[in-house]
């Protein structure tokens, strides 16, 4: 196991490259979802406001 983690002496290079990749992939998921959610809530609010103003 330690031998695997050491990566033949290239541990810091291999693990930082894979770690950074994981971070970028997860960030892609999180950002895309957050953006989708915020667009949805913003537009729902907008429709609700329009509803109110037409009700008056």
């Amino acid at each position: 196991m330690t031998e695997f983690l050491e990566m033949g002496g290239y541990a810091k290079y291999v693990w930082s490259a894979f770690g950074l990749t994981l971070v970028v992939l997860v960030a892609n998921i999180v950002v895309a979802r957050q953006q989708f959610r915020s667009v949805r809530t913003r537009l729902a609010q907008r429709w609700a406001n329009q509803q109110e103003s037409s009700d008056l």
């Binding site: 695997f4 990566m7 033949g8 002496g9 290239y10 290079y13 291999v14 490259a17 894979f18 990749t21």
Partner: peptide, 21 residues
Amino acid sequence: GLVLAPPDYQQGDGFRIIYVH
């Protein structure tokens, strides 16, 4: 890439960065 593939004859385990690069 990290476990099953053998190390490279020149770069050893350092070549495994290819799997994300």
